[in-house]
Amino acid sequence: MRPPYELVGARPDPAFEISVDGRPVPVVPGQSVGAALHAAGVRSWRSTRFGGRPRGLFCGIGVCFDCLVTVNDVPALRACVTEARPGDRVRTSAADSGTAAARAGAGKDTAGKSVAGAGRPGAAGKEPGGESGGDDEGVNGR
């Protein structure tokens, strides 16, 4: 049991999975897509229109629209306010353009370091699409 869970004495319901660009990501029931991605160490999943810049959560409360994703073919949903449901298929624009999230999820060495220090040693060297980006030690306490 990691600190935040100890702090509030949480014993959450069993996690389920969603798929993000084909990779499984674990979700504690009630979490948003954005929170689940962030917890899994994925810090960016959108690629901007002009500069191809990586974006993920910024405001976290549905105001900035930086965290847009496609869920079950519904485009442009705010990941931070879209509650994840079992079996959701999430598609990111980063995957479409082959930028940040794809790199992050693929765990390439350079990106692995810069994925916000999420400290995902397990991710390094995995095939794109083969890594859950899940079990992050230390960051999200799960």
Binding site: P3, P4, Y5, V8, A10, P12, V28, G30, Q31, S32, A35, A36, H38, A39, R43, S44, P54, R55, G56, L57, F58, C59, G60, I61, C64, C80, A100, A116, V139, N140, G141
Partner: peptide, 19 residues
């Protein structure tokens, strides 16, 4: 990525127990 608003960081913790 990794730069959040203070409220965003707070929301992750309070609403999802994500640090």
């Amino acid at each position: 990525p990794g730069v959040l608003t203070a409220g965003g960081a707070q929301a992750l913790l309070k609403g999802s127990l994500v640090v």
